[in-house]
Write a protein that binds this DNA or RNA. Structure first.
Length: 258
DNA sequence: CAGGATGTTGGGTC
DNA sequence: CGACCCAACATCCT
């Protein structure tokens, strides 16, 4: 589930429930804390107060007033839930952060994501420093420059978190469909008009998706069409193409995307 | 039972 | 070095 829009939703959810609150206690499964232990994480965070949550790409950064921070990555199945301290633990609750009025839980079916402890600036760099500019804040000029330096396929580039951060399989397919650009199109041969359409598609798709805290399966979007039995292009009605591109199942319209 | 799922990483290859 | 491909990770569903 979690791509940029989902994580942006988690950031709002974190602020609604945890911003300004003190961490009373913390419980975690051992393997889910990637660069420390549940005890180490607890020692660093207990007694600290959460500041405003931030998002970078698909990462949620939960900073505290002590300079430390909790970093969360949601993998393919992670989410954040709010619960009362007496509520039953769900089998996939991997990390529980007890506040004084309830608890925030990191829940994930598959253990593809996890939690990282940031003690200082250097450890934040280690985890997040390899990412490209956030897809929601990249400018048209910056995008044009990045694409000019990149070789290979367009979908591969957009999926690469070190190229731009935050886009995933659904967002990229939706963006490319809106921009009328084929996923296997070469980045090198893009013209100015193509880059402009791409930029506008990123902007539009992310704006609508952030509102919904997900890529919405709404009327006229390829995200809705791809879930149907015989997927058709919402624009021209042609049967959608489906193939494995950049390692992921990709849907596109060979008639209106080129 | 096999294969796939909204993600990342490490290995090998050209 | 840059880009591609694949397998692996863990779990559930069709």
């Amino acid at each position: 589930m979690p791509e940029l829009p989902d994580v942006e939703g988690f950031r709002r959810f974190f602020d609604d429930h945890a911003h300004g609150k003190t961490i009373a206690h913390l419980k975690a499964e051992g393997e889910i804390v990637r660069n420390s232990s549940p005890q180490g994480l607890g020692r660093s965070l207990k007694g600290a107060r959460f500041q405003t949550g931030r998002r970078y790409g698909k990462w949620l950064i939960c900073p505290t007033d002590r300079g430390s921070a909790l970093l969360l990555h949601f993998g393919m199945t992670g989410e954040l839930v709010w619960a009362g301290s007496s509520d039953d633990l769900h089998p996939h609750d991997r990390l529980t952060i007890e506040l004084y009025d309830g608890e925030l839980r990191y829940r994930a079916m598959r253990k593809l994501g996890g939690a990282w402890l940031k003690r200082d600036w250097e450890t934040l760099e280690e985890v997040v420093g390899t990412l490209g500019p956030d897809a929601d804040h990249v400018s048209a000029d910056e995008l044009a420059e990045l694409l000019g330096r990149r070789r290979g396929g367009l979908k591969s580039a957009l999926m690469d978190q070190s190229f731009v951060a935050g886009l995933g399989n659904l967002t990229v397919d939706e963006i490319l469909w809106h921009a009328r650009l084929a996923p296997q199109r070469s980045t090198r041969e893009l013209e100015d008009v193509d880059v402009t359409r791409l930029y506008e598609a990123i902007d539009g798709v992310l704006r609508d998706s952030k509102k919904a805290a997900r890529v919405p399966a709404k009327e006229g979007w390829i995200t809705k069409a791809r879930a149907e039995d015989a997927p058709q292009c919402p624009r021209c009605g042609k049967r959608l193409s489906r193939d494995r591109i950049a390692g992921r199942t990709t849907f596109w319209c060979s008639s209106c995307q080129s």
